[in-house]
Simulated scan of single mutants.
Amino acid sequence: MIIKKADLEAVAVKKMQYPDEGLKEIAFAGRSNVGKSSLLNLIVNRKKLARVSGSPGKTRTINFYIINDEFRIVDLPGYGYAKISKSISENWGDMIETYLSTRQNLIKVVQLVDIRHAPSNQDIQMYEWLKHYGLDGIVVATKADKISRNEMFKNISIIKKTLGLKSTDKVIPVSSLKRTGYDDLMNELERLLEG
C-alpha cells in the first residue's frame, strides 16, 4: 500500500463530531508516551501530520485522518499519563469507549506498547476493552531500535503473555526512527482493509 494523500478530516470529543461512516477506519491506541504520533507520521510518510509533543498527554481529542480518500486512520487519546487530572482521564475513558462501542465502520484498533517495558495495567485494560469489542489482534511494539535483537524476541514474548494474546494475534516491532517493521505494518493494514 502506498499512501499518497493524508489529511486531518475531523477532531472530535463527542459522537456528533465524528465524520460520516462511509469509509473503513483503523484506530490507534496507546499510552501517552508510547510514540503514537511518530508512528502515524511514519505510516503516512509525513513529518508533521500528527503533532509530536515533547510532553506526553497532549492528544485530548479523537483525530480522524482521511487517507488516499479511501479509508481513515483514527488517533485515539493517549492514556495513562500521571500528570493529567483524574476528571480529564475519566472523560478520555468515556470518549474512547463511546467510539469503540458505537462506530460501525471501525474494523480494527492497533494497540501500541513500548517494547522496552512489560505492558502496564492500563495497557492490559485497554487490550481487554479491545477484546470485548472484537477489535483486538494487532499490537505494535514501538521503539524497537532501542533494544538488541535478542531482547526484542524476549520482550515480544513478555508482551504476548502479559496481554494474553492468542497464537493468531500479531506483535509487530516498529522503529519510527529507523523504519524497522514499516513494511510488516503496512502489509497488515492493507490486509485489514481488503478483508
Rank of each mutant, 00 (worst) to 15 (best):
I2C: 05
I2N: 12
K5T: 15
A6G: 14
D7A: 14
D7W: 09
L8T: 14
V11S: 15
K15W: 04
Q17R: 06
Q17Y: 08
Y18Q: 08
D20P: 13
E21H: 08
E21G: 11
E21W: 07
G22M: 07
L23T: 06
L23P: 08
L23G: 14
K24N: 12
K24M: 13
K24V: 07
E25Q: 14
F28H: 04
A29W: 03
A29F: 03
G30V: 07
S32M: 07
G35K: 01
K36D: 06
K36N: 09
S37K: 01
S37L: 04
S37R: 03
S38D: 05
L39N: 05
L39A: 09
L39Y: 02
L39H: 01
L39R: 01
L39C: 05
N41V: 09
N41R: 08
I43K: 02
V44D: 00
N45L: 04
N45V: 08
R46T: 13
K47W: 00
K48W: 04
L49S: 12
A50S: 13
S55V: 15
S55L: 15
P56G: 00
G57V: 07
G57Y: 00
T59Y: 01
R60M: 12
T61K: 08
N63A: 09
F64L: 06
I67F: 04
I67R: 00
N68G: 03
D69G: 08
F71Q: 02
R72T: 08
R72H: 09
I73T: 11
G78M: 02
G80W: 01
A82M: 12
A82F: 05
K83A: 11
K83T: 10
I84L: 04
W92G: 15
G93D: 11
E97S: 11
Y99M: 12
L100S: 03
S101C: 12
T102K: 14
R103V: 07
I107D: 06
I107Q: 10
V110M: 05
V113H: 03
V113R: 01
V113Q: 02
I115D: 00
I115H: 00
H117A: 12
H117K: 11
A118F: 08
S120A: 10
S120I: 07
S120Y: 00
N121I: 15
D123F: 04
I124G: 06
Q125S: 12
Q125D: 13
M126H: 06
E128W: 08
L130C: 00
L130S: 05
K131F: 00
K131W: 02
H132S: 12
Y133K: 11
G134F: 02
L135H: 02
G137S: 05
I138G: 03
V139R: 02
T142P: 01
T142H: 02
T142R: 00
K143G: 01
I147N: 00
S148H: 13
E151A: 06
E151W: 01
M152I: 06
M152G: 07
K154P: 05
S157Q: 15
K161T: 15
G164T: 15
S167W: 10
S167H: 13
S167Q: 14
T168C: 08
T168P: 04
T168K: 13
T168N: 11
K170Q: 10
I172G: 02
S175W: 00
Y182W: 05
D183I: 15
L185N: 03
M186F: 07
E188Q: 11
E190Y: 07
E190C: 11
E190P: 10
R191V: 09
L192G: 06
G195Q: 06
